[in-house]
Amino acid sequence: MHILVVDDEPDVQSLFEQRFRREIRSGELRFIFTFSGEEALTRLEDQHSEIVLILSDINMPGMSGLELLESIRESHPMAPPLVMMITAYGDEDTHAKALSLGANDFLTKPLDFSELKQKLKDTL
């Protein structure tokens, strides 16, 4: 039950670790943190079977979250992990584009962690 988090802001890691401290401690959820789309792809290659959900930021330097989503959907068409996109720009275009590229959900920053927890509980 690994969740891959992709965000170029390193502080996202400690934020998640603290927000989900109970779940992490109980072994309910496990997180893998990567800081770019490229890094996320490599981790996906290595630990593909363990990852069940990807939480990715859209706005990142280099490979963007949407490009990451596109390449995931292209390279793993058979066993797609769940992908949730996070973005600071909660506009309709980006939302539609993310969904058309095969995103399972769309969240806007600042993240509402209780909502996220609920969604994780529902989907997993």
Binding site: E9, Q18, R19, A88, K109, P110, L111, F113
Partner: peptide, 14 residues
Amino acid sequence: IQNPLNFVNNFSEV
């Protein structure tokens, strides 16, 4: 500005 503000909010909440 939004990014650091999000962190300020998130970290103070947590």
